[in-house]
Write a protein that binds this DNA or RNA. Structure first.
Lengths: 114, 114
DNA sequence: TTATTATATAATGATTTGCTTATATATACA
DNA sequence: TGTATATATAAGCAAATCATTATATAATAA
């Protein structure tokens, strides 16, 4: 077994985490753009606590990190996380989600503070 | 968006399917060796219906196929399935599980009919 | 200071999941 | 043919999941 291979139980845990359409799309978006909670609320049309809970799960395994900027808390992918190489390979096979952020731009609800 | 990219909801569905340690290990094993139900029962130490139910889920999305050989039903990965390229890339990042089958050989519980 | 905005957490409930045991079906063997 | 073996399906149950509403906390604006 390669030293670099992810363990099966860790891999299953990560796949289960990504096996939710909302979280998977979040991570795909965050892989190329920082976003704050309210942007995700707008994109996914679910309640703010629901978004916060998804982000919490991603943060709990260290896959995303948060950073306060004024009134907002921005999330980004933690590319130095041990699971990132595994996740990154998966994300690379997914269609880019730029249309979601472009939609926010058009609506004027994209947050571009700081 | 690339024509070849898997849709987000399909991707999430596949990841959720693989996001179970038993199923993930099954698919990893099946990717290189056909196996029958009773071998998985031996490997995973869970009930036979539990194994059958996992295989059913994998079969329902077309990721594995079955073939009767005498008294046994052998399962294998359906490499022509539309999701196989996506899955294959994930499997390639996992440690090989040959030790599981080697263990069966040692115990003499490997099925090598037909 | 008070009101507003952004976010997190707690509590709750419906649905899904993954196991179990019991049972049905199909093949193989004596 | 009758019995054993391999597998599938059904039913039941505990735990996990994902949403919601209510509430708490922190920063900003008036």
């Amino acid at each position: 077994m390669l030293k670099t291979a992810i363990e099966m139980d860790r891999a299953a845990m990560i796949l289960r985490l990504l096996g939710d359409k909302t979280r998977l799309t979040m991570v795909k978006i965050l892989d190329s753009h920082d976003c704050c909670v309210c942007e995700f609320v707008e994109i996914f049309k679910v309640s703010q606590p629901s978004i916060s809970q998804h982000l919490r799960k991603l943060k709990d395994v260290g896959l995303v990190k948060e950073e306060r900027r004024g009134q907002w808390i921005f999330y980004s992918v933690n590319k130095s996380n041990e699971y990132y190489p595994f996740v990154s390979q998966i994300l690379s096979q997914l269609p880019d989600q730029d249309d979601k952020l472009n939609e926010l731009e058009k609506q004027g609800t994209r947050i571009t503070c700081c």
